[in-house]
């Protein structure tokens, strides 16, 4: 996208949207042109206007909302459970060297495993409802949060710890006032990645077998070679992911108010 602004110096001053909107229009035009002139077969590549027709129908009839709702619930649950589990186990292993030493190879092995292959097992264990998707999302989110927390705790400033101890903190208070805030700040710094992963888990889970959700819509459409609906589903997922990312950005800004950002340091 920035290539356009590099070519000529004059357009670099325009607002990004002015440059970005023609790009997306151009791409859609290209798609339309290539499929209309049968350079690309419509059967495999769909038709842009029919895709928009599907989207229009979904949103005007409200058909899409229950499916989006299910995907959202799965994403949120996967994130919450995965983050909590990662936080607790990360804290525990970081503060307990023996447990950490014993668990190390298993953690590495579990992280190395492609976790998407767990989806069929989760479907058998938890059924085709939301919980098999939540479980898949949890396995993806857990490791991101776990490694962040584990590293974060081991890098807590020793001066901060010594200071809290001198001020009279007992072990529990040390956990509450130093380790936990420090660990949560690491959870939040990985928020974008882990929410994204929770979303991936939900959609992949739906796609591999479900009765509801946007992934389910795509699966159904693919089964009858309705390529326009597949594209429409992809567009909905992309837009949804963008909205989710924006929401995370807002939450992050709220929660990490104490963090210095570049150039923000105030001098008196």
């Amino acid at each position: 996208m920035s290539r356009a602004s590099k070519n000529r110096r004059g357009i670099a001053d325009l607002p990004s949207a002015v440059l970005q909107i023609p790009i997306v229009c151009g791409l859609i035009g290209l798609w339309y042109g290539l499929t209309e002139t049968a350079v690309l077969p419509k059967f495999f590549f769909g038709e842009p206007f029919k895709v928009f027709g599907v989207l229009w129908h979904w949103f005007t009839s409200g058909e899409i909302f229950p499916h989006l709702g299910v995907t959202l619930v799965e994403t949120v649950l996967a994130f919450v459970f995965g983050a909590l589990l990662g936080l607790v186990i990360g804290l525990w292993l970081a503060l307990n060297p023996t447990a950490s030493r014993l668990a190390d190879p298993y953690i590495k092995a579990a992280n190395a495993m492609p976790r998407v292959v767990l989806a069929p097992i989760f479907a058998v264990w938890f059924g085709l409802g939301i919980w098999s998707k939540v479980a898949l999302g949890v396995t993806l989110v857990f490791f991101i949060v776990f490694f962040n927390v584990y590293q974060g705790i081991r890098e807590v400033s020793p001066v901060l710890l010594a200071n809290a101890r001198v001020l009279g903190a007992n072990a529990r208070q040390l956990l509450r006032t130093v380790y936990l805030p420090s660990a949560t700040s690491w959870v939040f710094s990985s928020l974008h990645t882990s929410v994204g992963m929770a979303f991936v888990g939900a959609v992949v889970g739906e796609y591999l077998g479900s009765a509801r959700g946007v992934g389910y819509l795509i699966l159904q459409a693919e089964g009858v070679f309705d390529i326009n609906t597949v594209f429409a589903g992809m567009l909905v997922l992309t837009a949804f992911a963008l909205v989710l990312d924006q929401a995370v950005g807002v939450v992050e800004k709220r929660l990490l108010v104490w963090r210095p950002t570049h150039g923000e340091t105030e001098k008196l």
């Binding site: 001066v159 901060l160 010594a162």
Partner: peptide, 9 residues
């Protein structure tokens, strides 16, 4: 302490 000892959060 000589180093920063305030909790940043």
């Amino acid at each position: 302490f000589q180093a920063e000892s305030l909790m940043p959060w």
